[in-house]
Nucleic acid binder design. Structure first.
Length: 269
DNA sequence: CATCATGTTATAAT
DNA sequence: CATTATAACATGAT
C-alpha cells in the first residue's frame, strides 16, 4: 500500500515505542525482506537499544537507535508497521518484531517486496544523505521538473512519475492522481509538455504530496472526495469531475486509472 | 483456475 | 553510452 504519505503514517506507528528499551528481537530469517541484510548485526544492534528518532524520505524510513544503530525500512508493495500491546505473538507474515516491556513494534509484509537493512554509524548512512529531493521539499525546483521531462522526453509521463530517482515517494495512485488533476492522459510523452505545463506539473506534484501528507500521513484519513483517489478502487467508478466511466489499462506493467473524457492531450485544447 | 495488486531491480532491447 | 521495455520476485484477493 505504501507511497510517501502511507510510509509517513506507518513510520509514526513505530514512534509510539520511542524511548523504550528493546528486550527481545524476533526475526523471520528465511524471509526475502532480509536479502542483503546482516541479521546477526540487526539482532545484536537492536537488542537493548532505545528508539531515538524516525524520519522518512519518499518511500524509505530510517529509524535511529541508541548506540549509533540505524534501521532502514522499505515497505515494498504490501509492507506495514504497527505497534501492538504485549504480550504479542508474531503473525504469519511478521518478519521483524521488536519487543519492549509493554509494546511490540512489528514489520509485516505478505509479498515480501519490502526490505530491511541496518548499519552502525554516528550519522545517517551515506546513501540516505544523497537521496534526491522529494516533490514537496523546498529544494525541489520547477527547473528540475523541466530538465527531467526533457531528458526522458519519450517516456509516458505517468511512467516517468513513478521513477524514484526523480520523484521519490510517488507511487501508482499518486501518479494517476497527478495526471488526472493535470487533465492529461497517462501515456502522453513527457517531452510534449510546454514550459507552462511543466510548471503546472510542479505545482500539482507539490499539492498532491502536501495534501496526502496532511491527511493519510496524519491519521489515514482520505484525501478530498473531489480527488480521483476515492473513486478509483470502487466497483463502479466514474470520474468525480465529469461523470464519465473511468478506464483502467496497463501501462508499462502498472495499472493506469484515468478518465478518457477529461484527460485529453494538450493538442486538443 | 486465471488475473490482478499503492514496488523495485536485473537484464534485454533500442 | 543513454534511455526504454520487460520479467521476476511471493502471497492473497477477486
Amino acid at each position: 500500500m505504501p507511497e510517501l504519505a502511507e510510509v509517513l503514517y506507518f513510520s509514526r506507528r513505530w514512534d509510539a515505542g520511542m524511548g523504550r528499551v528493546v528486550v527481545a528481537v524476533h526475526a523471520n530469517t528465511k524471509s526475502r525482506v532480509f536479502r542483503g541484510c546482516n541479521i546477526a548485526a540487526l539482532k545484536s544492534g537492536l537488542a537493548g537499544a532505545r528508539l531515538k528518532a524516525s524520519r522518512t524520505h519518499g518511500k524509505q524510513v530510517l529509524f535511529e537507535f541508541s548506540g549509533g544503530h540505524w534501521l532502514a525500512v522499505h515497505l515494498g508493495m504490501t509492507g506495514a508497521l504497527s505497534a501492538n500491546p504485549e504480550p504479542y505473538e508474531p503473525c504469519k507474515h511478521d518478519h521483524l518484531v521488536r519487543h519492549t516491556k509493554s509494546l511490540a513494534l512489528v514489520f509485516t509484509d505478505p509479498r515480501q517486496f519490502g526490505a530491511l537493512k541496518v548499519c552502525e554509524e554516528k550519522t545517517p548512512p551515506a546513501w540516505w544523505k544523497i537521496l534526491p529531493p522529494q516533490p514537496m521539499d523546498d529544494t525541489f525546483a520547477p527547473e528540475r521538473v523541466a530538465e527531467i521531462l526533457q531528458r526522458h522526453a519519450r517516456q509516458p509521463l505517468k511512467t516517468l512519475l513513478l521513477d524514484q530517482r526523480y520523484f521519490p515517494g510517488i507511487g501508482n495512485w499518486m501518479a494517476d492522481e497527478i495526471m488526472w488533476q493535470m487533465k492529461l492522459p497517462p501515456h502522453i510523452a513527457a517531452g510534449s509538455l510546454a514550459a507552462k505545463q511543466a510548471l503546472k506539473l510542479w505545482r500539482t506534484l507539490r499539492k498532491v504530496c502536501d495534501v496526502a501528507v496532511k491527511t493519510i500521513g496524519v491519521d489515514w484519513r482520505n484525501p478530498p472526495r473531489s480527488w480521483l483517489f476515492s473513486h478509483r478502487w470502487k466497483r463502479v467508478n466514474d470520474c468525480p469531475r465529469c461523470g464519465a466511466k473511468l478506464r483502467h489499462e496497463n501501462l508499462r506493467g502498472r495499472t493506469a486509472c484515468w478518465c478518457p473524457a477529461c484527460q485529453k492531450s494538450i493538442m486538443t485544447y
